[in-house]
């Protein structure tokens, strides 16, 4: 294993981790405030990618297509919240699981009807195509660096919003004590809608920018959702920083594990262990720190 490959895989891991963060941050804030588990969160990651692929194919303009897809997913988030989710926030977790499992079935089937079961490929825009020479003799794809940067910017924006705006203050208040919010005369329904729509938008955004790197197809969201669950369990609930640290940890461990373990342990044991690495990490955190890295756990 030479340094170049190691560095490249680490960068890939960071990029994957950032995408996980976009998923997990929304999940975590929605758990924290609405005490709501949404199995359809990964489906929205897939829908984001399909929106983007469709707009990009129609318009041939990467940036405009991205913007339209973001707006469309925000709108979808609002509609879902008002039409379905608001009725579920005060229900038992079992009811939430069943209803969102139904939504997941619906959206996956709808995507299969609208876009077919063949995978879509989104071309990387010319501006971001190609590689860049990094120190250590690595030629690294520009696009991956670009989406890592986008993800970090979103993380920063989210942090600033939560820490420094009135909306963010309400989110923090809601995460610790929901009753105070209605006492403060806040229309909780709109707060919930805002939180949910932003969560959907971030998941969809992750799907969009990951689109050109992978095959866009039905079922891509659930794999991502389950790994995002692992991130939330490891990170704990209630802190954006915790979610970020945990996402990067999971992203890097998973990516490096898949690259390194087969080299170290051979092609029989290596892939087997690599497929388990993040779950073993999760089990270790459960044993040592059941409350997660960031510490606050209310569920």
């Amino acid at each position: 294993m030479d340094f170049g490959l190691f560095a490249e895989q680490t960068l890939n891991g960071v990029q994957y981790g950032i995408m996980l963060f976009l998923m997990a941050a929304g999940l975590s804030v929605i758990f924290g405030i609405m005490n709501f588990i949404n199995l359809a969160h990964g489906t929205l990651y897939m829908i984001g990618a399909f929106f983007f692929a469709t707009f990009d194919a129609w318009l041939g303009n990467f940036a405009v297509a991205l913007l339209l897809a973001i707006l469309a997913s925000l709108l979808l988030g609002l509609v879902l919240d008002r039409g379905v989710m608001q009725r579920l926030y005060d229900r038992t977790h079992l009811d939430q699981v069943l209803a969102t499992f139904g939504l997941l079935m619906f959206f996956n089937e709808l995507a299969a009807v609208l876009w077919g079961t063949e995978p879509y490929f989104i071309p990387v825009p010319a501006l971001l195509d190609g590689t860049i020479a990094l120190p250590g003799d690595i030629d690294y794809p520009v696009y991956r660096l670009a989406i890592t940067a986008v993800g970090l910017l979103v993380a920063l924006g989210l942090y600033l919003m939560v820490e420094h705006t009135r909306f963010g203050m309400l989110i923090r208040a809601g995460a610790t004590d929901r009753e105070t919010l209605s006492g403060m005369g806040v229309d909780v329904r709109w707060l919930y809608s805002g939180v949910f729509a932003i969560g959907v938008m971030m998941a969809a955004l992750a799907g969009m920018v990951t689109g050109p790197l992978v095959a866009v197809q039905v079922g891509m969201g659930e794999t991502m959702l389950i790994v995002a669950f692992v991130v939330v369990v490891i990170g704990g609930i209630g802190s954006i920083t915790g979610a970020l640290v945990s996402s990067l940890l999971v992203g890097v461990v998973d990516t490096l594990g898949r690259a390194l373990l087969p080299v170290w342990l051979g092609y029989t044991a290596g892939p087997a262990l690599a497929s388990m690495s993040i779950y073993v990490l999760m089990a270790a955190v459960l044993l040592l720190r059941p409350q997660g890295l960031s510490g606050a756990r209310r569920a």
Partner: peptide, 13 residues
């Protein structure tokens, strides 16, 4: 070792 939504997520994972 955990409850509620975490239990759901962990069993799934």
């Amino acid at each position: 070792r955990v409850r509620g939504v975490f239990f759901i997520m962990i069993t799934l994972a």
